[in-house]
Design a protein around this nucleic acid. Structure first.
Length: 796
DNA sequence: AGCTGTGGCAGGGAGG
DNA sequence: CCTCCCTGCCAC
């Protein structure tokens, strides 16, 4: 158990099919044998067998911990995958894959189960075939795990297509979208190859043939693209079909298999068609970006160009062409379009290089392929680590417990208003630290794997981080980056372990342990508050593991502040450390989880859904931001001017569609929405009504950008939505009354900082008298009276 | 086909 | 008007 993770790294456990009687997992024991785990009558048995595709029964072993009469207590592994044979033919690298093939050929094995078999009939009903079919099937199902390899050593190819867009056609709906011709396919790889194949001098059919030939010749391990599952691959496949070109981009000339799949990012989920390319892994960088944004929440758009700019690897000489202009650019300046297409794949390469590394190293720890790992959520990965260790120790697995978690983080605002100076301190890795220091372990974890995995992951991360520093100092950037990606993969798993405890479907879930983690977190937060207060700090806000406070008068320099934080950190329980995490000149404290911070370089950051949300109109976000800056500068006349400026722009239709449109993500299918509305399960909504009226062309996961049209501030607007693309600058029909109402709603954010009378003077257009800030005072500080605090006051 | 958690705010439809 | 409830988005 000491070397759990290393053991995991050295063995391949692969999951099988989720059916009643069959194989639930397998190790690759050696080049010639695998160990198969299978279940029968409630228990898990295993046997060691010669290599797939043949296996013979040897002795069966019952796993420990299983109580046959107590079926409720133990359950067998919850399985993944759609065809366990597919998973059995997974090898550590393409080299061992070839060795397996040679093994089959050397032994002259001529029978195998064929693709399409459901795989769970009894032996007598199996379909066997001869000769080449074995080889074919072997290849068809083959995947590599990249055990022990460095990310840089794997051959990754990036792919992007451009189509000749005929205006008006795409808007007809999804079914029409394959009618455009492919004019450019750009390819690059991580070994410096960059090519653009285009149809300037050849037919589309010849273009497609060259693409298939090029990919086969390059023979990459991984194919990457931005939105590749929903656009590039299905498009290429469709056009190949139409031209009678074999879409054989898999290894050994095999064609991809497709099946519908879906992926979830926090609260949103989206459907896509998964492309399983034999012998290769497909990675969609759009998924990587969205997954990244779940924790960072820093991206405005998930489009390739926007992301490249955000991360700072967009070339300053990069060619930009609007979507609608692709066809005309192709006609007038095709060299420019070729440059544009090449920039796309180069940016995809950069993006993947930055975000893929941690998935790559996670895959080396898990019984999932690299492509699978890059699409899986964190809970599945955690569970896989546990299941793998249980099967290795030949122990049966528990069943998920039912119930729910009751507690979460502690959040409180003590002071509101305009405050400063401010220090931000936070408990380092609060939940993982608690789980380690307070010996948290699910009650169903009979082997007590949970704390061991957590500790090992932490130690491994520490070692990996150490290596990053070492290689950075030694100027070995490539190796440093690799180890940075590796420590990142450990970090993701460490942070996911708490969430897993409260996960309904987790077989090792334990809601009371999850509650123990959060309630311990709450008392640590309270202790932290008390310690800072007793040193003369005035606490502004606490949220879960972080605290914002005004240091006492004597503490003025950063050094003083750090010393203070250190002192409090020393007073915390063993294993719990508080770190200094920033200092600010001023802060606007508005509500829980909603505030603005002004640093010592006078840069302001705004946090919270009520102050800066992507679902708000851009003009509203700008108004609040500028308003807060003005407020921090205590410029009252400036606030009034700002309000008047926006009011005039709205009334004179001076705002551009980008400033007053709103965007929302479709979280269910339009059909599901209709169904729910009919059943009275949900109310009507502008976005879905809009999509239904547009008649197709939109699906789950799409972002709808719309505005409110018409006139009059009626009480409901669900039928007044228009797509942003329908807006006409020369005939602006946005609903002025609605947007003035929205402006007023945004003004409400400034209400707490003024007396009611002053507030209405500043944010009104009364022209009877010229506006004067005379006599208006900013309310600098309000003590927040929460129910809890109010109770304490009564006692006092 | 696969799935990490709670806490908090805003907006809008529905119905009294 | 108001409250209730749902959805969407965000902090941690």
């Amino acid at each position: 158990m000491d070397n759990l993770i290393h053991d995991i790294l050295d063995n391949d456990l692969l999951f099988g099919k989720d059916k009643e009687e069959l194989i639930v997992g397998a190790y690759q024991l050696s080049d010639t044998h695998i160990r198969l785990f299978f279940r029968r009558e409630g228990s898990v048995l295993y046997r060691d067998d010669p290599f797939y595709p043949f296996f013979f029964l040897s002795e069966e072993t019952v796993l420990s911990g299983f109580v046959p009469e107590d079926k409720k207590k133990f359950w067998l592994v919850r399985l993944q995958g759609n065809n366990f044979y597919q998973y059995l033919a997974i090898f550590s690298s393409w080299k061992t894959f070839r060795a397996g093939l040679d093994f089959i050929n050397a032994k002259k094995i001529t029978t195998a189960r064929m693709p399409g078999d459901s795989g769970h009939e009894d032996e007598s009903s199996l379909t066997y075939s001869k000769g080449d079919a074995v080889t074919q099937y072997f290849l068809q199902t083959g995947k590599t795990l990249f055990k022990g390899m460095l990310f840089d050593d794997v051959h990754r190819l990036q792919l992007d297509i451009e189509t000749y867009y005929k205006p008006g056609r795409r808007d007809q709906g999804k079914n029409e979208r394959f009618s455009d011709e492919i004019i450019i396919v750009s390819l690059s790889d991580n070994r410096g190859m960059e090519v653009v194949i285009h149809s300037r001098n050849c037919s589309e059919k010849e273009l497609l043939e060259r693409v298939v030939e090029t990919i086969s010749r390059m023979d990459p391990d991984v194919i990457e693209g931005h939105n590749i599952f929903s656009f590039d691959l299905p498009y290429l496949q469709r056009r190949c079909d139409q031209h009678g070109v074999s879409f054989s981009i898999g290894r050994d000339g095999l064609v991809p298999k497709t099946y519908p799949s879906s992926i979830r990012f926090a609260e949103r989920s989206l459907d896509f068609t998964f492309f399983d390319i034999p012998g290769r892994h497909v990675v969609d960088t759009l998924f990587l970006v969205q997954s990244y944004d779940v924790s960072k929440r820093s991206l405005q758009s998930y489009g390739l160009k926007a992301v490249a700019k955000h991360f700072g690897f967009a070339s300053p000489h990069r060619t930009y062409i609007d979507y609608e202009d692709i066809a005309s650019t192709w006609d007038t300046d095709h060299e420019k379009l070729l440059a544009y297409a090449l920039d796309d794949v180069i940016e995809t390469r950069e993006l993947s290089g930055m975000l893929s590394g941690s998935n790559f190293y996670t895959a080396q720890m898990l019984p999932y392929t690299y492509a699978m790992t890059s699409r899986l959520g964190p809970a599945a990965k955690i569970e896989a680590l546990f299941v793998r260790e249980y099967l290795r120790q030949k122990h049966s697995l528990p069943k998920p417990s039912s119930g729910q978690q009751y507690m979460g983080g502690y959040t409180e605002v003590f002071l509101k208003g305009i405050l400063g100076p401010v220090v931000y301190a936070d408990v380092e890795s609060l939940y993982p630290s608690i789980m380690l220091s307070y010996d948290v372990c699910p009650k169903s974890d009979a082997l007590r794997v949970f704390p061991v995995v957590l500790r090992d992951l932490r130690d491994l991360r520490f070692k990996a981080k150490h290596l990053v520093t070492e290689y950075r100092n030694g100027k070995n950037t490539a190796l440093a980056d690799n180890f940075d990606a590796m420590q990142g993969s450990f970090k993701i798993l460490i942070n996911a372990m708490y969430g897993y405890l409260g996960f309904q479907g987790g077989i090792f879930n334990d809601f009371s342990e999850a509650d123990r983690v959060t309630s311990t977190g709450q008392s640590i937060a309270r202790k932290m508050i008390a310690e800072f207060e007793s040193r003369g700090c005035r606490v502004i806000e606490v949220d879960t593991d972080g605290i914002l406070f005004i240091p006492p008068p004597g503490v003025t320099t950063e050094e003083d502040e750090r010393k203070l934080v250190n002192e409090v950190s020393g007073r915390m329980p063993d294993g719990i450390n508080i770190g200094f995490d920033g200092r600010f000149r001023k802060m606007i404290s508005y509500l829980k989880k909603n505030y603005a911070l002004l640093d010592y370089n006078n840069r302001m950051t705004v946090k919270g859904s009520s102050l800066s949300s992507r679902s708000n109109e851009k003009f509203g976000r700008d108004f609040i931001r500028k308003g807060f800056e003005t407020l921090l500068a205590e410029n009252i006349a400036g606030l009034h001017d700002l309000f008047m400026d926006y009011r005039r722009k709205i009334m004179d239709h001076e705002l551009d569609i980008a400033e007053f449109s709103r965007s929302e993500t479709l979280k269910s299918t339009p059909e599901q929405y209709l169904e729910d509305v009919r059943a009275g399960r949900r109310a009507k909504s502008i976005t879905y009504e809009l999509v239904l009226r547009a008649g197709g062309g939109f699906s789950k996961g799409d972002r709808i950008t719309y505005y409110i049209s018409g006139s009059g501030a009626s009480s409901s607007f669900f039928d007044k939505g228009r797509l942003a693309s329908e807006w006409n600058r020369s005939k602006p029909d946005e609903n002025t009354a609605f947007y003035l109402k929205r402006l007023d709603e945004h003004c409400q954010k400034f209400l707490p900082f003024f007396k009611p009378q002053d507030f209405s003077t500043i944010f009104s257009a009364d022209t009877l008298f010229a506006f004067s800030p005379e006599g208006i005072e900013i309310i600098r500080e309000t003590r927040n009276i929460s129910p809890e605090t109010a109770g304490n006051n009564d006692i006092l």
